[in-house]
């Protein structure tokens, strides 16, 4: 009984890892991207302030 359905169960958990994994990686990457972008923007502003 168990053997014949292993593929479907494994497929389901693989789908979960794929979808949830994509959500997690997406969130982490966008967080890092935003952090870097903000740091760049702030550095630019500070440089301009001290330059004037």
């Amino acid at each position: 009984m168990a053997g014949q359905y292993v593929g479907f169960i494994a497929g389901s958990y693989a789908a979960a890892i794929l979808v949830l994994g994509a959500m997690i990686v997406g969130a982490v990457l966008s967080y890092r991207g935003a952090k870097a972008r903000l740091a760049r923007a702030e550095a630019l502003r500070d440089a301009e302030k001290s330059g004037r």
Binding site: L20, V28, Y31, L38, A41, L44, R45
Partner: peptide
């Protein structure tokens, strides 16, 4: 819990993105 964690992370990123956007605009 996974949802709440990811939502917090994404919102945090969005807030930083908006602030960066404002700064870039000012610059």
């Amino acid at each position: 819990m996974l949802y709440i964690t990811l939502l917090m992370l994404a919102m945090r990123a969005e807030v930083m993105n908006r602030r960066a956007e404002r700064l870039e605009l000012l610059a």
